[in-house]
Design a protein around this nucleic acid. Structure first.
Length: 732
DNA sequence: GAGCACTGC
């Protein structure tokens, strides 16, 4: 790899023209397939041409690994040590210095830098890479940079030269990008990849989202391929951990039989090495995936979308594409995030196929028909900005002085109701006032890499001097699920037993407390990694939580030094203090016991929800009244996870805030300055509503008294006793 | 009595 000669890259023929085009234009779109060398070479050309003399050349990537590995390669090519002239910056790892001219970074890092310095004084050129992936942060950067160049009013004091912006994208949608950026020129660089032959194999339809159907098809196609095709490794794209494990089991079973039945020696392949690959897999198990298989053995990696962009496996010659992906979509109608299996887009399918053509010509087998391709698969994936909760992004924009967040230049506009929902949530957690201006608290909140509700709870804790309870919880909720769910049945029961023990040991019926307890116990143990193994906890995720906690603590310390940091006092138990802090952030996620074991959300949607079976409160619904929760999972039912029992008293003063602002008001808040007259009118309306709320409150008061600390632990004891009796009764 | 794709600050 290192010996490859950058002078022979397709881009090298265009060096002069590229530099000229960038000097002559404020914006330039550069397009080219993988292998054109644009990511590594273009910044060097600009450096050589002296564009780095008056400022840094910043290059953004959507992923950390990409930023780091590209920086490593370029520093090697330039002949400097990493962190000098060429460096990188990602979260938790800043490898750049005063002298750094070419700086690779994640898009999120550049967004943070803009918050600290809106005019980007340090930079002479900003290059946005992989723009076609449409990551949320890259989309926001694109809008901010457009706005800055086209409407620079008052935003750039101290800038001597104008900023150059280069937008790099795969050959898709370049006309749209150019038009968005004022019809700027598009520069095309030929790529250097190998052809991939594409085959449509079967009749999987759009309704076959039941995993048993597509898993079976994928296995069948992979085995046919194994017995019928020449040497070369296979990469199978599936939807998630359980589907991958199922497919691997089936492959093991059948491949063994096949290897005896067929003579596959013609193809120099004797066996099949089957390897699962998904995000939450332990790192030590992943190592084998990147190593070449033993001689005469064909490697078959069964992976999630993680293998589409994040990880590159060498030697892949065949792709088996299930045509589906698990995607988290925000449904603003019910106010819920839903993780669902959906058909991938055509561009995503091409991306998957392309993984077979990196080093030699390849083949892609699609388990769906041409008809499915034409009728069911959209051209492009809906960009993240149109699928996700916008709360953090809107707060960031507001802090950057973008008051009119509806008419912000989005490459693709999110639906207005998504924006309104975000504004409402920000208003509810005191980040903006009802004129849509960022509050003092909002300015503190934007500093934290956390969702606003959680930040609100953390800041409440900090102002009450109990941040040591909230910081670990915030960190644990920021990392992937720490509870290991093994594939095999017997191990699963082991894990379940250990997790239940951890819940009992936390001494509380509150999932947030369980997280806090796990964090503290793990950190205090002599060997945290052994502790994790014994309790079926993800060690990698825990390490990450420790890192996040440290970062959050540093941010908080910095903010607490400011003299306007709010301080309060509270008189009550530690448990109540903790839960009251959570209430201040999560009161929009409040639900009340309804019939049977169900709860009804009080956010205005009135959705019926169940407590997830992994919760410490599962099976004790009868003893509960009011709860708050961290998130919702929609599967066979609507489940709430990470649940905390509360008293109505603690949220009753906050609840009117859920209803006092309606979409119409926020819409005008979003668009323009609000008049005093309008505010007066709203306040009158609000007072009327509050009166109505107060009469309803009387009726509710009767129900609140059971739900305090002692009654919950008593309830738990009663439950355990009943369970014990049941078990004894069953054993003869 | 369920079963959670992937990123990022």
């Amino acid at each position: 790899m290192d010996s490859w000669d950058s002078r022979h890259l397709p881009i090298s023929l265009h060096q002069e023209k590229l530099v000229h085009a960038i000097k002559a234009n404020a914006f330039l779109v550069v397009t080219g397939e993988t292998g054109s060398g644009k990511t590594t070479q273009l910044p060097q050309y600009l450096y050589q041409a002296g564009l780095g003399k008056n400022g840094k050349i910043g290059v953004t990537q959507p992923r950390r690994v990409a930023a780091i590995t590209v920086a490593q390669r370029v520093s090697h090519e330039v002949g400097c040590s990493l962190g000098k002239e060429v460096g990188y910056q990602v979260r938790f790892d800043d490898c750049s210095s005063e002298n750094t001219v070419i700086k690779y970074m994640t898009d999120g890092c550049l967004l943070r830098e803009i918050l600290a310095d809106p005019s980007l004084r340090q930079y002479s050129v900003v290059i946005l890479d992989e723009v076609h992936e449409r990551s949320l942060n890259t989309d926001i950067l694109l809008g901010l940079l457009k706005r800055k160049v086209f409407h620079p009013q008052g935003s750039s004091p101290g800038r001597s030269t104008s900023l150059k912006v280069v937008v790099m994208s795969a050959t898709l949608e370049t006309a749209k990008l150019s038009e968005f950026l004022g019809h700027c020129p598009v520069f095309t660089i030929p790529g250097r990849t190998f052809p991939v032959a594409e085959t449509f194999c079967s009749l999987i339809g759009p309704k076959d989202t039941d995993s048993s159907v597509y898993v079976k098809e994928v296995v069948k196609v992979a085995l046919d391929l194994h017995t019928g095709e020449m040497t070369g490794d296979i990469l199978v794209f599936l939807t998630g951990q359980s589907e991958i494990e199922k497919a691997c089991d089936m492959l093991y079973e059948k491949a063994e039989a096949i290897d005896y039945r067929y003579d596959v020696h013609d193809h120099s392949v004797e066996g099949l090495l089957i390897l699962p690959l998904y995000g939450s897999m332990p790192t030590d198990q992943q190592r084998q995936i990147f190593q070449p298989p033993p001689k005469g053995v064909r490697k078959c990696v069964v992976a999630t979308n993680i293998a589409a962009t994040s990880l590159t496996i060498n030697g892949i010659r065949y792709i088996v594409d299930s045509g589906f992906v698990k995607q988290l979509n925000h449904n603003s109608r019910v106010g819920l995030d839903i993780l669902e299996v959906v058909p991938i887009s055509k561009s995503e399918a091409q991306q998957r196929a392309g993984r077979a053509g990196r080093t030699t010509a390849g083949k892609c087998f699609r388990i769906y028909s041409k008809e499915f391709w034409e009728k069911c698969m959209p051209e492009y994936t809906v960009p993240e900005i149109q699928r996700t909760s916008l709360t953090s992004v809107i707060l960031t924009l507001k802090c950057l002085g973008v008051h009119d967040v509806i008419r912000f230049p989005y490459l693709d506009c999110p639906e207005e109701r998504f924006i309104l929902a975000a504004l409402k949530q920000l208003y509810q957690c005191d980040a903006i006032d009802r004129r849509g201006h960022v509050t003092r608290l909002g300015k503190l909140m934007v500093e934290f890499p956390l969702p606003p509700g959680l930040t609100r709870a953390l800041l409440k804790g900090a102002s009450l001097g109990c941040e040591d309870l909230l910081l670990p919880v915030a960190a644990m909720l920021s990392v992937e699920n720490i509870f290991i769910r093994p594939g095999q049945q017997d191990k699963q029961q082991d894990a379940e037993r250990e997790h239940r023990k951890l819940i009992t040991k936390s001494g509380s019926c509150n999932d947030f407390t369980v997280l806090l307890s796990v964090f503290e116990k793990c950190r205090a143990s002599d060997s945290p990694s052994t502790w994790c193994r014994d309790h079926w906890i993800h060690w990698r995720a825990m390490k990450s939580a420790f890192n996040v906690e440290t970062q959050l603590r540093e941010i908080l310390l910095r903010l607490k030094k400011q003299n306007d940091f709010p301080m309060e006092t509270f008189d009550g138990s530690r448990s109540e203090l903790f839960r009251r802090c959570l209430c201040s952030g999560y009161f929009a996620n409040v639900a009340r016991r309804a019939v049977g074991r169900t709860f009804c959300t009080m956010d205005g949607h009135g959705s019926v929800v169940h407590i997830h079976p992994s919760s410490a409160l599962f099976d004790q619904e009868a003893e509960l009244d009011w709860i708050i929760f961290h998130d919702v999972l929609v599967t066979s039912r609507v489940y709430v996870r990470t649940v905390c029992p509360i008293r109505y008293d603690w949220v009753k003063d906050l609840l009117p805030k859920l209803h006092e602002v309606d979409a119409y008001e926020l819409s005008s808040v979003a668009r323009e300055e609000v008049t005093d007259e309008e505010v007066t009118r709203w306040e009158a309306k609000e007072a009327a509503k509050r009166q109505a709320d107060e009469s309803a409150e009387e009726a509710l008061k009767k129900m609140e008294k059971r739900n305090d600390d002692t009654s919950v632990s008593e309830a738990r004891a009663r439950y355990l006793q009943r369970k014990k009796e049941r078990r004894q009764g069953k054993v003869p």
